[in-house]
Simulated assay, not measured.
Amino acid sequence: MQSSFTIPADHPSLSGHFPGRPIVPGVLLLDAVLQAVAAAAPERGAPAKLIRAKFPARVAPGAAVAVTLAPRGDDRLGFTCRCGDTIVLLGEFGWPAPA
């Protein structure tokens, strides 16, 4: 499952993050991934927990970010975000285990 998003350069959170060299805050990236999860699997509802997240590279305002989602069993979903060939975020969300 793939989707993409862009955080515009005029987003309100960028003015203080960081002056002179803005970068997209990680919370905005995670929110965009959650939106991709909701669009890809609306029947699941929002994940119950963030199992792990790693931000190996910065995202500049206006950069296109591609999101790839990969199921990992019944209760986990992996995600990878890339700007071009560069991985900028990877991690895993989880839901309560099925009864």
Rank of each mutant, 00 (worst) to 15 (best):
T68R: 09
K49E: 14
D75L: 01
S3N: 06
P22R: 00
A99C: 03
G20Y: 09
A39P: 03
G73H: 11
F55D: 10
I87Y: 08
A57D: 12
G16P: 03
G26S: 02
S4K: 04
E92G: 01
A40W: 12
W95P: 01
D10A: 11
T80P: 00
E43L: 12
H17R: 04
R44Y: 06
A60W: 06
P8Q: 08
P47E: 11
T80M: 09
P71I: 07
G78L: 11
E92D: 08
A32E: 14
A38S: 15
A48D: 15
A41W: 11
R76E: 12
P22L: 10
S4N: 07
K54T: 11
R44N: 09
E43A: 15
F18Y: 14
V33I: 15
P96C: 02
Q2C: 07
L28S: 05
R76M: 13
R21H: 14
C83G: 00
T6Q: 14
A63M: 03
P25N: 01
L77D: 08
T80Y: 02
E43W: 04
I23S: 06
A70V: 09
M1R: 06
F18I: 00
R72H: 12
A63L: 02
A9G: 12
D85E: 14
A57N: 13
D31F: 00
A97T: 09
F18S: 07
P98Y: 01
P19S: 05
V37K: 08
A53I: 07
A60M: 10
D10V: 11
T80H: 04
A40C: 08
Q35C: 12
T68F: 01
T80R: 13
F5T: 06
Q35R: 14
G16R: 05
D75S: 15
T6N: 05
R72S: 15
L30R: 05
G20K: 02
A99H: 05
V88W: 02
G16M: 07
P19K: 00
H11I: 13
M1P: 14
V65H: 04
A38R: 13
L69S: 05
I87V: 15
A41M: 14
L89V: 02
A9W: 09
G91K: 00
A66R: 11
P42F: 10
V37S: 09
L14Q: 03
A41N: 00
V24N: 07
I51P: 00
G91E: 01
W95E: 04
T86H: 03
T68M: 10
P61K: 07
Q2T: 15
A38D: 13
V24K: 04
R58W: 07
R72D: 15
L30A: 06
R44V: 09
A32Y: 01
A39L: 09
V24S: 07
T86N: 04
V65T: 11
V67K: 00
R76A: 14
L28H: 07
S4P: 00
V59A: 03
P22F: 08
F18H: 08
R58N: 11
H17A: 14
G16V: 01
T68E: 15
A99N: 00
A53W: 08
A32D: 06
G20C: 06
V88H: 02
A40H: 12
A60H: 08
T86F: 01
Q35V: 09
A39V: 13
G16T: 03
A40P: 04
G94Q: 03
G91T: 09
C81W: 05
F93H: 04
